[in-house]
């Protein structure tokens, strides 16, 4: 930030606007950066403590914990690392936990190569088309047939989130340039 007054004034206004936006969308936790295992542990532990203090039901607490882990690990394992000099291996992205009257929403956003949009859309649409029984069947099929990827993913994350929350997954691919999109995924957990 340059030291001139106009820039600082603008920045301070940005901070206030940011604060208001967070309040408006009931954001409890927001993060942008590398999603490491340490981050996943810290965020889930912080959220558990908060929910316990707020006397959230155990079943909701468990679901929020579950979905947070799967979402954070998705970004850590699958987000595109664009910088060719990037030495650290964990993916970067944005994470938001919002608490509304009737539900928690857990949102992640990360950069993805456009070549992956098609298969991801297929998987997400498939998951969204299934009812509870259908999701159970798909889960069993995937756990039997799927192999653990070299990144340690089992290809079960989206199925598991839909199964545990009983809600559809909301998502979008926002264009960045010819090569990359910004993938946003929101899961809702009813309270």
């Amino acid at each position: 930030m340059a030291g001139n007054g106009a820039d600082i004034k603008e920045f301070l206004e940005f901070v206030y606007g940011f604060y208001r936006s967070m309040n408006e969308h009931k954001v409890q936790l927001a993060y942008e950066g590398e999603i490491t295992h340490q981050i996943t542990k810290a965020f889930t532990s912080l959220t558990e403590t908060t929910m316990e203090l707020e006397e959230e039901s155990h079943s909701t607490q468990k679901k929020v914990f579950h979905v947070m882990v799967e979402c954070l690990q998705n970004v850590g394992k699958h987000a595109e690392v664009i910088d060719p000099n990037e030495i650290r291996k964990d993916g970067k992205g944005i994470f938001l936990l919002c608490k509304n009257e009737g539900e928690y929403t857990i949102t992640t956003g990360n950069i993805l190569n456009k070549t992956r949009t098609h298969e991801m859309t297929e998987v997400l649409e498939k998951v969204n088309s299934l009812d509870k029984e259908g999701l159970k069947q798909l889960y069993k099929q995937q756990i039997k047939e799927g192999r653990l990827s070299n990144k340690g993913g089992a290809g079960l994350g989206f199925i598991d989130i839909a199964k545990k929350t009983g809600n559809k997954l909301f998502y979008n691919f926002l264009p960045i340039d010819d090569e990359f999109s910004f993938f946003v995924l929101t899961s809702k957990i009813s309270r």
């Binding site: 468990k62 914990f65 579950h66 882990v69 799967e70 690990q73 756990i143 039997k144 799927g146 653990l148 340690g152 993913g153 089992a154 079960l156 994350g157 598991d160």
Partner: peptide, 12 residues
């Protein structure tokens, strides 16, 4: 009490 999906594969 809890396992993630990556662990579920190993449990299988």
């Amino acid at each position: 009490v809890y396992f993630n999906t990556a662990s579920s594969k190993m449990l299988l």
